[in-house]
Design a protein around this nucleic acid. Structure first.
Lengths: 343, 343
DNA sequence: GCGAGACGCTAATACGTATTTTCAGATCAC
DNA sequence: GTGATCTGAAAATACGTATTAGCGTCTCGC
């Protein structure tokens, strides 16, 4: 590497102020006790020397000496800053940035982790994970082994979204999709719907399972009866075959695809069939109608995740058991105009 | 699970393999020379010990030992991840992320820097700037003193956007707004426009000055004559007073404001007056017409900036003089439909 | 006048890694 | 057979900061 212009160190300051490096460190950290005492005069002298130099503490050395660095890692299983993923990651990143600013920490994005099979891998030979005090994990799907290993190593981290990929107790902050889905199903029942489709993606994430669980509960308990459909290809026939009056889509984009497919076949939402997304719907419209679904506090989730992480970092790991490390935040129904009474 | 899971270190590996920490380091870094020789047998033994452990090198220690870490700092003078700033920062961040992935480096966002007077300050007592190998600077306006200090300290950094806040030779990658503006003025002249307004914001950034310079050149050299207007409040009167047939706005958002203000007064774009933005116009429309202006390669700018930074880091600072550290990338005119022949 | 404690500071050490130097034993040259 | 070279490895050191232990000097109490 380049023969860097040597930096100002405590030793240099010490030389100027005519004291030892230890004293400089003590002054900088405002240490004062029974075995270490520094009179105001010396303190001032050191401080002046620091002011007149361009000294800044070397974070690597601080870290090596065992102190916190206020650096939070951010690991995303997919590219986070691309235009396509902004819809999902945008609010989360925004929440993280704001919380980080408040807490006073920097964010280290692990953009270097090699991509294998379409997702980034967290642990690899040169992982820089440990440069951070802790880490936020983002992504729709996560690797259960990664999560387990992090827990085992007692590395402070918080996942965004409920996690059940491993039996290890993973700290997370997520959204309570179970309750939201249940509420929405109840609402649909009130409106007289008895037969419905649930259109989902192949994906197998915990939040997907949460929704699915309630769908199954409804089927088993005499609520509206759902037929599961994977993708929109056969949606028109499925609708005709089951006589469904309502379609639940896993998310807003899928809902838009559904509306499009139905529209092509001459079936109009919501006049002929109701449509609802089981996800954030802000900004989504179908045939000019605001889409029915959820409002989820994504920024807040991210902010809470960072706060929880901060808590883990400042708490000795043998006291983690006493912390509430699995948070589900409540979202709210967004009634919209595409879920209406049975036609 | 009670015992503290201390991190695996080279010393630990050494103990297991029955060698010294030195040897472990040598194996890890594939060192082999006249001074240091390790036979394949020992090498294998160490490697196996590493494989079976969860060892990962501590980046802080590596850094302290003088190695680079493939960590690029990202400093933004304003919040970068908020929805409002996404329009400006989004493409830049995207370009950075992709380039970082290619180069194999992580991105450290300095979100902790305290905000004073609305902008973040780069240098402060606890700045973690130096934890990064180098730094990318983003923002419309930058602090000349910051830039000068970075240059003086020979810290590797690259600014995004042309910089002239200091006489120090600041490495940057920007967009050639001078040529673009000149082209657009020439185009306007071809279309017969002789009298025009230039609507700008109070802002005083280098790119703003670049555009302004060409506006003045046009005025001085017999091109279309521009009257400068600050903000849209008096736009209607200004238009009437000067008899202008064309409005240049500093950016697309300002252009939209102009169109709105004119519309309220019954003046329609582009039928009665032409309108053009001196900035990126993708996705912007005025009265249903695609806005005329520029297409600027923001992602590419960011990617080039990261590549340049990488170059600076891997080049000894006494050879920087031989590098081409000030790049202007060419954008292209987006003709759109709001710049038409003189009415 | 002499031990006890207070005072003001520093030497020594630790953190984990990379490099430079050193060293013991084997082999070679003559 | 003995100085020289080669081999395989470890000891010593450096990076910059934080902490712990401890040292010399002064003052107080009796």
């Amino acid at each position: 590497m380049a023969p860097k212009a040597r930096n100002v160190t405590q030793r240099e300051i010490a030389r100027i102020a005519g004291v030892s490096q230890t004293t400089v460190s003590m002054v900088l950290n405002d240490r004062d006790g029974s075995n270490v005492r520094i009179p105001e005069a010396t303190r001032e002298r050191v401080k002046r020397a620091i002011e007149q130099s361009t000294y800044v503490a070397d974070p690597a050395a601080r870290r090596l000496a065992g102190l916190d660095n206020q650096i939070m890692g951010v690991f995303t299983y997919e590219a986070a800053l691309s235009p396509e993923s902004m819809d999902f990651y945008g609010p989360l990143l925004n929440g993280l940035e704001r919380a980080a600013e408040q807490v006073g920490c920097d964010l280290l994005f692990f953009t270097s982790s090699p991509v294998e099979d379409g997702t980034r891998s967290l642990f690899h030979r040169k992982t820089r994970l440990r440069l951070a005090d802790g880490c936020i994990l983002l992504g729709q799907q996560m690797d259960g082994d990664d999560l387990k290993r992090l827990v085992d190593e007692e590395f402070p981290f918080v996942a965004v979204g409920r996690r059940d990929e491993t039996t290890a107790k993973v700290p997370y902050v997520g959204i309570d999709y179970v309750s939201l889905t249940a509420e929405l199903i109840a609402r649909a029942a009130e409106l007289g719907h008895r037969e419905a489709l649930y259109v989902h993606r192949g994906r197998n994430s915990p939040t997907a399972r949460d929704r699915l669980q309630e769908i199954h509960t409804s089927n088993a308990s005499g609520g509206p009866r759902f037929t599961l459909v994977d993708g929109v290809d056969t949606i028109v026939e499925d609708l005709a075959r089951t006589g469904a009056t309502l379609v639940f889509a896993e998310d807003a984009f899928l809902a838009e695809d559904v509306a499009l497919a139905l529209g092509k076949a001459g079936t109009v939402v919501p006049e002929q069939v109701s449509l609802t997304a089981l996800g954030e719907v802000r900004g989504h419209r179908v045939n000019g109608h605001p889409l029915s679904g959820f409002q989820v506090p994504r920024q807040q989730v991210a902010a809470e995740a960072l706060n929880l992480l901060q808590q883990l970092i400042t708490t000795p790991s043998d006291e983690w058991a006493g912390l509430d490390t699995q948070l589900l935040l409540a979202g709210q129904l967004e009634l919209g105009e595409t879920l209406v009474g049975r036609a």
